[in-house]
Computed example of a mutant assay.
Amino acid sequence: MKNSRFHACATCIHFRPEKSGDSLKYYCARLGFETKTHYQFDCWNPKENIKKLMARESQVNRE
């Protein structure tokens, strides 16, 4: 799945945005450190809505 266009921290179940004062920071709840929305890690576990989008796209590509 690493080659998937959906693969990014922002689409992972472990992604947590946290507002800190005037800024917004992003954290990986699994790894325990700050991340960026576009970063990619091998531990990626997509959110349910992303899984559905990937399945739909895969089905369209097979037709």
Results as ranks from 00 to 15, higher is better:
Y26S: 02
S58W: 08
N3Q: 13
G32L: 05
A55F: 07
H38Y: 14
K52W: 00
N61I: 11
K52H: 00
L31F: 10
G21D: 03
K52R: 05
M1H: 09
C9S: 12
F15K: 01
M1L: 12
Y27C: 02
C12R: 02
C12M: 05
K25D: 12
A10R: 13
Y39S: 05
G32H: 03
K2P: 11
K36M: 10
C12G: 02
H7Q: 09
P46D: 06
F41I: 08
K36H: 13
K47I: 07
H7D: 05
D22C: 03
T37A: 14
F41G: 08
E63L: 15
R5S: 15
Y27T: 04
F15M: 02
S4K: 12
L53T: 00
S23A: 11
S4L: 15
K2G: 11
N45G: 04
I13V: 15
V60N: 04
Y26D: 03
K52Y: 00
K51P: 00
F33C: 03
F6C: 13
C43D: 11
E34T: 05
R5L: 14
R30P: 02
R30D: 10
F33L: 05
L53K: 07
C9L: 14
A55P: 00
C12Q: 02
T35F: 03
H14W: 06
P46L: 06
E63H: 15
R16N: 06
R30Q: 15
R5E: 15
G21W: 06
W44R: 07
Q59V: 08
V60E: 07
H38E: 14
N49D: 10
C43E: 10
C9A: 14
L53G: 01
C28Q: 03
F15H: 06
E63F: 15
R56K: 12
N45R: 06
H38F: 13
I13Q: 12
Q59L: 10
N45Q: 10
H38S: 12
